[in-house]
Design a protein around this nucleic acid. Sequence first.
DNA 1: ATTGTGGCCTGCCCGC
DNA 2: TGCGGGCAGGCCACAA
Length: 259
Amino acid sequence: MPELLEVETYRRQASAVVGRRIVAVEAPDAWYVKRGDRSVLEPALVGQRVSGIDRVGKLLLLDLEDGTRLGLRFGMTGRLLVDGSASIDRLQYSSTRTDPAWIRFSLFFDDGGDLRMLDPRRLGGVELDPDVARLGPDALTITASELAAALGRSRAPLKARLLDQSRIAGIGNLLADEILFAAALDPARPASSLTPSELGALHQSILTTLPTMMSTGGSHTGPLRTAAALGALCPLDGTPLLRRQIAGRTTWSCPLHQR
DNA sequence: ATTGTGGCCTGCCCGC
DNA sequence: TGCGGGCAGGCCACAA
């Protein structure tokens, strides 16, 4: 999916619908509605005003005036359209086209506007009152002690823990690689093997990498990803980058400075 | 309990 | 130009 950065962009964009009243719901793809279908969504949503927009990790939340929350998950290829326009018109590994057949879910508002989800691969979905407690602290604001707790005494690869949404919410495959690259840590290191200073470096890396990449344009704009695409040499020391599968995901790292 | 694997879906790109 | 294979930013159920 879009990772945390893209969903944060969606959140800002979706704030435009706060205060509007929902007058209709379109859910043409039953698969896309989790834990229910349109017959459950429609009575829960129609007639209600959107009171706020929230985000936890990669989950976007529309708060309604009666306390109901609608969760939007974007999977790997989901995009958001508000009033017909997109804040992100290009997603890595998704299409740049806007095929109407890919509209999986729409809300229509009393002012004539709408909010739509476009998702070619259908890996996202919408869910009424999703269980937010299953998510760990949001990566954008995680504290050092929360990070230490998230890694715990696990022998699993460091990267696997960073990707575990129940431990830390929001980090996807590309962000995990960039964070570990900037922290000079080997993604395959056991999560519990970090020294206090390495843990501090990892925390700093999360808190600086995310805002930096947010400002440069998203999860695919990091130095590591860029270098991997260009010739697979480490931008810091010129060493050929390593490409491996870790936690089941393609993983890029520098074998020299990431230890 | 923790950790790893496979599957879900579909579009796109590359090489033949 | 057409086609098959491989790839993909996520998430969940399942098994060891």
